[in-house]
Design a protein around this nucleic acid. Structure first.
Length: 200
DNA sequence: CCCTGATTCGC
DNA sequence: GCGAATCAGG
């Protein structure tokens, strides 16, 4: 493969968008990230300034093109009630909490198998609001994969009740090494410290 | 461990 | 000019 005009253009565009060299290489195909970086340098745009866009704004997680693009214009949003019921962090006090401070969603409450131990869910009242908010966002865009799809690189955060058809795993890219994606790592690993006496 | 970009240097 | 190997960092 050679650096045709078109390929160089794609390179420039993506680099400008803040895409990583490896992502660009993957997109172009036939080249390694090293080749991309090398080219970037030769083109003299190692400094990601050129592109008008100031910040990359966090590379959007793999589009994966699963959801059929259905965004004619603006939606009055909140038009997705069919989603798996998720505990709403903003609703504090309103939701019932179990002994671990876990909000019990309607769905879950309805199907709790006889005293079966549920997977370790985050203790809502012991985690930073930011982290929680993040998780709730992520769970909306999660890949919702099944047990079989789990790999070392997919977030293994369980959502829902295993005894329910609504059960799935996050599936987003894991935080290097760890078993969960960034958002879930945030609520999974609590520094022993902050767990100290939390007012109930 | 996995990933990032930067640099070098033989081709 | 090209890019693998290597370096340096997260």
């Amino acid at each position: 493969m050679s650096w045709t005009d078109e390929r160089v253009e794609t390179l420039k565009r993506m680099w400008g968008e803040g895409q990583s060299a490896s992502q660009i290489a993957k997109e172009l195909g036939g080249v390694t990230r090293n080749a991309v970086i090398g080219k970037v340098h030769r083109l003299g745009l190692s400094n990601r300034a050129g592109a008008g866009a100031a910040e990359p704004a966090e590379a959007a997680p793999a589009p994966v093109e699963a959801p059929a693009e259905e965004r004619p214009h603006m939606r009055t949003e909140s038009a997705t009630p069919q989603r798996a019921p998720k505990p709403d962090p903003e609703a504090e006090e309103v939701e019932e909490l179990d002994e671990n401070g876990i909000p019990i969603s309607a769905a879950r409450r309805a199907i709790i198998p006889a005293g079966q131990p549920l997977p370790p869910q985050p203790s809502a009242n012991e985690i930073s609001p930011e982290a929680l908010a993040k998780v709730n966002e992520v769970e909306k865009s999660a890949k919702k994969i099944g047990l079989m799809e789990l790999t070392e690189k997919t977030c293994k955060w369980p959502v829902g009740d295993p005894a329910t058809p609504d059960f799935w795993f996050c599936g987003l890219p894991t935080q290097q090494g760890k078993p969960y994606c960034e958002a879930h790592v945030g609520v999974a690993f609590q520094p022993m410290s902050s767990r100290r006496d939390r007012r109930r």
